[in-house]
């Protein structure tokens, strides 16, 4: 594989051909915010927080799905990008019911963290206060749709990593909803293996371990990482 040289925020970096801007930036310790990316899963370019400016391209490009090219000049920070990122986060807060004070993931939530990192101290859009339910029918896990940001990480964890495909998205637009099997209560979805990968992949408090109370739910990504790495490197193939 050929190496490509490019600059990110003026810093020269070299990376393997085929790498994405996000990977390269992270390797160079440059933080690009994102909510829908999770290492080990296919990128979908959905949250639009990782948008960056590329010199010579009028469009803003998502770092997670943009593949690097020789001589690329990338800017990950600018007034414009900051403004858009902030607005994106505000839109998310106004969209469903994110009440951090009483959330199981308070203090361990990627949405909450990004909000303060990006300087969101209030939301200018009218809160929509939609009515969404909480599904606690599964014996070990719960899903609070009020806190869901539709990043689809749980769906990808379930389909790509676990292979159970219990989770999918139903409906469309703002009415989109994460479902289990045929939109059944999670506890009745017989394809679910109770592996918990969806729960661990969730960036907010939407998916949680039952019994967690406010601020207790910490998502553990290491397990996902372990499975994905092992699979990619074929660590569990017996060479008999």
């Amino acid at each position: 594989m050929a190496a490509k040289t490019l600059t990110i925020n003026g810093q020269q970096v070299t990376a393997e051909e085929g790498a994405t801007v996000l990977q390269v930036a992270r390797d160079a310790k440059i933080n690009i915010p994102t909510l829908c990316h999770l290492d080990g899963m296919k990128d979908v370019g959905a949250c639009r927080l990782c948008i960056v400016e590329v010199v010579g391209t009028p469009k803003l490009l998502p770092a997670c799905t943009t593949v690097i090219a020789e001589g690329m000049e990338i800017k990950t920070e600018s007034d414009r990008l900051r403004k858009y990122r902030k607005m994106t986060l505000e839109l998310l807060f106004a969209e469903r019911n994110h009440v951090c004070a009483v959330c199981v993931a308070n203090g361990h939530c990627e949405l909450q963290t990004l909000a303060y990192e990006q300087g969101v101290d209030h939301v200018r859009y009218d809160y929509l206060f939609p009515k969404w339910g909480v599904d606690t029918t599964h014996e070990r896990f719960g899903m609070d749709h009020n806190r869901c940001i539709l990043c689809s990480r749980c769906v990808r964890a379930c389909v790509e990593i676990e292979g159970a495909a219990t989770k999918s998205i139903a409906g469309r637009g703002a009415k989109s909803k994460i479902i289990s099997d045929l939109n059944e209560p999670w506890g009745e979805a017989d394809s679910c293996t109770s592996c918990g990968k969806c729960v661990q992949s969730c960036p907010t408090g939407a998916l949680f371990n039952k019994g967690s109370t406010v601020a207790e739910m910490e998502h553990d990504r290491s397990h996902l990482d372990y499975v994905v790495t092992a699979r990619e490197k074929k660590l569990w193939v017996t060479h008999a």
């Binding site: 106004a94 969209e95 859009y125 929509l128 940001i149 409906g171 637009g173 009415k175 989109s176």
Partner: peptide, 21 residues
């Protein structure tokens, strides 16, 4: 546009709702 947004990306899904509002 709000009704036809697929819901994948946030600006279109949530932005069109706020614009309509």
């Amino acid at each position: 546009c709000m009704d036809e947004s697929c819901g994948k990306c946030i600006p279109c899904r949530a932005g069109t709702v706020q614009m309509f509002h």
